[in-house]
Simulated assay, not measured.
Amino acid sequence: MTRHFARISAFAAVLAIGLSAPALAEVSTVRIAKQFGISYLPLTVMEEEKLFEKHAKEEGLDIKVEWLRFTGGSGMNEALLSGNLDLAAGGVGPMLTIWGKTQKNIKVKGVAALNAMPLFLVTVNPAVSSLKDFTSGDKIALPTVKTSIQAITLQMAAEKEFGPGQQNKLDPLTVSMGHPDAQLAMMGGRSEITAHFGSSPFQELELKDRRAKKVLDSYDVLGGPHTFNLVWASTKFVDENPKVMKAFVAALEDSVQRIKSDPAAAAALWIKAENSKMAVADAEQIIRAPENDWTTTPKKMMSYLDYMNRAGYVAGKAKDWRDLFFNLIPNASGS
Rank of each mutant, 00 (worst) to 15 (best):
I152S: 05
S82K: 06
A112R: 03
M76R: 02
G224V: 13
T297D: 15
S234G: 03
D217G: 06
L222A: 10
F326C: 04
L87D: 04
E78W: 04
I17Q: 13
G163E: 07
K50F: 00
W270Q: 01
A182G: 09
A233H: 03
F237K: 02
D138F: 02
K107T: 11
I140C: 08
S130H: 15
S335F: 10
V238T: 08
Q166G: 14
A157G: 01
G312S: 04
G224I: 10
E240S: 13
F248V: 01
K34S: 03
M302R: 13
S218K: 00
R7T: 13
M1T: 08
Q155Y: 05
A33D: 06
S136A: 12
E291H: 12
L324E: 07
Q35P: 02
A315P: 10
M156T: 06
F228K: 04
G316V: 12
W270I: 05
G37C: 07
R322T: 11
A267W: 00
K160C: 00
F325Q: 02
P330N: 05
A56V: 05
S218Q: 14
L328K: 08
A283Q: 06
A265H: 09
L216W: 00
L173C: 05
A332M: 13
K139D: 01
A25W: 10
F36V: 03
G312H: 01
K109T: 12
V45H: 01
K272M: 03
D209N: 14
F52R: 02
T71S: 09
P298Q: 15
W321D: 09
M95Q: 02
S176C: 06
G110R: 03
V124I: 09
K299N: 12
I38V: 13
A127E: 11
A16M: 12
D181G: 06
A283N: 04
Q35C: 10
P298H: 15
G189N: 11
S82P: 00
K109F: 11
D293L: 12
D62L: 08
K243H: 11
H55T: 02
I259A: 05
K208T: 14
I286N: 13
R3Y: 14
Q203I: 09
D320T: 13
S130E: 15
F248G: 00
D239Y: 00
G188D: 00
I152K: 01
Y40H: 12
E253S: 11
S303Y: 05
P242C: 10
A281W: 12
L142K: 08
Q203R: 07
G334T: 02
A315G: 14
T153P: 02
V280G: 12
W270D: 04
F70H: 00
G137E: 04
N331T: 07
Q167K: 12
E159L: 10
S303C: 09
M156N: 11
V231E: 09
R288V: 11
F326R: 01
N275T: 14
A141H: 10
L142D: 01
A332W: 01
I63Q: 04
N309C: 04
S218A: 11
K34L: 09
N327D: 15
A251C: 15
K277I: 13
E48S: 15
M156L: 14
P263I: 07
L328R: 06
H55V: 03
F52M: 03
M1F: 04
H226K: 10
S129N: 13
